[in-house]
Design a protein around this nucleic acid. Structure first.
Length: 444
RNA sequence: GCUGUGAUGGUGUAGGGGUUAGCACGACAGAUUGUGGUUCUGUCAGCCCGAGUUCGAUUCUCGGUCACGGCCCCA
């Protein structure tokens, strides 16, 4: 038997119902903040992603050539396509742009729980406005979304790549990659700080001619933990270092205050100056959301301020701010939470509007009920018609099996009397109702 | 990139070098030609793929594929 390709998934109606409910919930949040949905192609020019992220990404791309030999690839993420679309289609639109998107992305890598070769990303980009307030809008939306989906166990970590970068370059570490090295000294330093590798950090400072005693304040800075109150100590540490500006820290303070005013309070908010997004186009505030119970694949959302539009000839619109939400991962977290709490509703609202009429023509010609079925559907009712001519007992079983909430039995006797028998499958109550759309809807 | 475990009807599982391969759920049909979720009966449906060892492999060995984990990485 042919199986589905490695790292992909099928979604049955039951699962899809949940996914649609989740997508709609996210979309509603986005719309309330003024974000509008866009969509881009599933495949793009290969160049779009190599330009943004470098040649290194090619190994994880589903790349191919079309019949004209043009190098293409399935998209590995959605930020670059949206930027491309802005440059191509939206140059003259009123700024700032608030865009949301949702779609499949593809990465050729080993997959596991919460990590698939075909995965779904929901995200937003705020383009054409920058600074602490724009950043706060984006973070506040992320918090509102997670709050709305009912997830309880999560924490948001907010940082600012500029702060640590300024401190390090202020000390004299270079942002340029020396010959023969794989990364600039400043990136090495950030990695050592992130991993807690003090020896590596000290060796690095020494080899760059920087007094080793600077390692201690850097370490203290990156070890800072806590909420918004962390800004104070950070300010003290930074003030003790030579040639370091406090502007970024001031901005972060404004962002945090604005977020607190705009969004519900998250279960846990941490200011962490070592939050580093993977790629270097992030220029300012960065943030991520972790679900601790998910272990190694626990990062469910990540974003920040970045500069990408200069690649498309629109440097004036940089920096932008946005985030991507791991649709599959959040759903996994919600499912785990629902299981733990013994709830059947995983996504808020997924069980709403489940009413469905199972129409059972009994010993009559089906054509006699078709107009009624059509009218009920036209009025917005979900109506499923028994198509196999089952006897009454089996038909009831069928109605039960498809999850109908009401059965509508119409037999010869009913036709004579101009009625149908409506039965509520939950309560078992049955009543005769006149054979008209209005009467039936009224009786539901 | 490294590494551990596994693969039996549609689903979940038992078993084991020669078996009518067992059980549960399921779907379908009947008991029940105007009323479901219970019950009874019947039917449907399975040893991942390839090679090797063997008189004989679903079982043992190797390879592949797929699945589930732990690291590394993660736009």
């Amino acid at each position: 038997m042919v199986q589905r390709p490695r790292g992909t998934r099928d979604f049955t109606p039951k699962v899809m119902n949940r996914r649609l409910a989740f997508e709609q919930l996210l979309e509603k949040c986005a719309r309330r903040s003024g974000f509008n949905r866009v969509q881009t192609p599933v495949f793009e020019s290969l160049e779009l992603f190599t330009a943004k992220s470098g040649q290194g990404v090619i190994s994880q791309l589903y790349g191919f050539e079309d019949k004209g030999g043009r190098p293409l690839t399935l998209r590995p993420e959605l930020t670059a396509p949206v930027m491309r679309m802005i440059a191509e289609e939206m140059r003259n639109d009123t700024k700032p742009l608030r865009l949301s998107y949702f779609g499949q992305c593809y990465r050729y890598e080993e997959f596991k729980k919460g990590r698939y070769r075909e995965f779904f990303q929901y995200g937003v980009e705020l383009v054409g406005a920058s600074g602490p307030l724009a950043e706060a809008e984006v973070i506040a939306l992320a918090i509102s979304m997670l709050d709305a989906c009912g997830l309880k166990d999560w924490q948001i970590r907010i940082g600012h790549v500029g702060i640590l970068k300024d401190a390090l370059s202020g000390l004299g570490l270079s942002v340029d990659t020396p010959e023969g090295a794989s990364e600039p000294p400043i990136a090495s330093a950030m990695r050592f700080l992130d991993k807690g590798d003090d020896k590596g950090l000290e060796a690095l400072l020494e080899s760059n001619g920087i007094p080793v005693q600077n390692a201690a304040p850097l370490r203290a800075l990156s070890d800072l933990e806590g909420g918004a109150e962390t800004i104070g100590p950070a300010r003290e540490i930074l003030s003790s270092l030579e040639g370091v500006s406090l502007d970024a820290l001031d901005d972060l303070q404004v962002t945090l205050d604005s977020v607190a005013a705009l969004a519900p309070a998250p279960p846990s908010l941490a200011v962490d100056l070592t939050v580093a997004r993977g790629l270097d186009y992030y220029t300012g505030m960065v943030f991520e959301v972790i679900v601790p119970s998910m272990g190694g694949e626990g990062q469910v959302l990540g974003g920040g301020s970045y500069k990408l539009l200069h690649l498309f000839g629109l440097p004036d619109l940089d920096p932008c701010c946005g985030f991507g939400l791991g649709f599959d991962r959040v759903l996994l977290a919600l499912e785990a939470q629902a299981t733990a709490e013994g709830r059947s509703e995983v996504v808020p609202g997924e069980l709403d509007d489940m009413s469905m009429i199972a129409c059972i023509p009994f010993n009559i010609d089906v054509s006699q009920v078709l107009p009624l079925v059509g009218e009920l559907r036209a009025k917005g009712q979900r109506v499923e018609l028994e198509l196999r001519g089952r006897k009454i007992g089996k038909a009831m079983n069928w109605a039960n099996g498809i999850g109908a909430t009401t059965t509508m039995v119409i037999g010869p006797r009913d036709l004579e009397q101009g009625q149908c028998m409506l039965k509520n499958l939950e309560t078992g109550e049955q009543q005769a109702v006149a054979l008209s759309v209005e009467a039936i809807i009224e009786a539901l």
